[in-house]
Simulated assay, not measured.
Amino acid sequence: MKLKFPLIAAFVAILSLTACGGGGGDSGADVVNPNNPATLVKTDNALGTGAEATAGKHVAVSYILWLYSASAADHKGTRLENGSFSFDLGAPGVIDGFQQGVTGMKVGGKRTVEVPSNLAYGARGGNGIPPNNGLVFEISLTCAGTSAQCKLP
């Protein structure tokens, strides 16, 4: 009967160690970057009434690009550029987050899109964008149709 208490104590000790996950470092966990949104966020500022931007259509857009900043009220950090261009929606050559942000817009619409780094330039960064930094775009859709219809001036 003398072994009963030490046996119970050993069992409780083992059980409590397994419940805490075994300790150790957190080396496998993702580092949270405050300048990177967790997911793609699309906010319509003005709904368009024209043709819809869908995969396979040629679209023309105007945009303003900022680095994402968690500390800014609107998440718009440093302004990087603005411009206009056209492209085939769904074709390679334009970052995935931008393409996903444009998809579903209607001509005449304006949208703010917060793009996480994994849908932009990722860990490598590039074009003035630091590694693992998200982006914020303000996008205006000016055309959705064929390349002949969506020529830029």
Score class of each variant (00 low, 15 high):
Asp96Gln: 14
Val41Pro: 04
Ser62Cys: 03
Thr18Asn: 08
Ala60Leu: 11
Val32Gly: 00
Thr54Ile: 11
Lys42Ile: 06
Ala51Lys: 04
Thr43Ile: 13
Lys76Gln: 15
Asp88Ile: 11
Val31Gln: 13
Asn82Gly: 11
Cys20Ala: 08
Gly23Met: 03
Gly50Ala: 08
Val59Asp: 00
Asp74Val: 12
Gly25Glu: 06
Leu47Ser: 08
Tyr68Lys: 12
Phe98Glu: 04
Ala46Val: 15
Ser71Val: 15
Ile64Ala: 13
Thr49Ser: 08
Phe85Asn: 03
Gly24Trp: 14
Thr54Cys: 00
Thr43Ser: 07
Ile64Leu: 08
Gly23Arg: 07
Asp96Ile: 12
Lys42Gly: 13
Thr43Leu: 10
Val94Gly: 00
Val61Ile: 15
Cys20Glu: 09
Asn36His: 11
Asn35Lys: 13
Lys57Ala: 00
Ser71Gln: 09
Pro34Met: 14
Leu80Tyr: 02
Gln100Arg: 15
Gly83Asp: 06
Pro34Asp: 10
Gly93Val: 11
Gly21Arg: 06
Asp74Gln: 05
Leu89Arg: 08
Gly83Met: 03
Gly25Ala: 14
Gly97Phe: 08
Glu52His: 01
Ile95Arg: 13
Thr78Asp: 04
Tyr63Lys: 02
Thr49Gln: 04
Asn35Ser: 09
Trp66Thr: 10
Asp30Ala: 14
Thr18Gly: 05
Ala55Val: 07
Gly24Phe: 11
Lys42His: 08
Arg79Ala: 02
Gln99Asp: 08
Arg79Thr: 08
Gly22Glu: 04
Asp30His: 09
Gly93Trp: 13
Val31Ile: 15
Ile95Val: 10
Ala70Thr: 05
Asn36Gly: 09
Ile95Tyr: 14
Pro92Lys: 12
Gln100Lys: 15
Ser27His: 04
Val31Asn: 04
Ala53Leu: 01
Ala51Asn: 13
Thr49Asp: 03
Gly24Cys: 05
Thr18Asp: 03
Lys76Thr: 14
Leu89Thr: 00
Gly50Tyr: 01
Val94Lys: 11
Lys42Leu: 02
Pro92Met: 07
Gly50Ser: 10
Thr54Ala: 03
Phe98Pro: 00
Ala19Pro: 02
Gln99Leu: 10
Ile95Leu: 11
Lys57Gln: 03
His58Arg: 04
Val41Thr: 14
Thr43Phe: 05
Ala72Met: 10
Asp30Val: 15
Gln99Ala: 09
Asp30Gly: 05
Asp74Ser: 11
Ser71Tyr: 02
Leu67Ile: 09
Thr78Ser: 07
Gly25Thr: 15
Ser84Thr: 15
Leu47Thr: 09
Leu67Phe: 05
Leu89Lys: 07
Ser27Tyr: 03
Tyr68Asp: 13
Ala38Asn: 05
Val32Arg: 15
Ala38Gln: 09
Ala29Phe: 07
Pro92Tyr: 09
Asn35His: 13
Leu80Cys: 05
Ser69Glu: 12
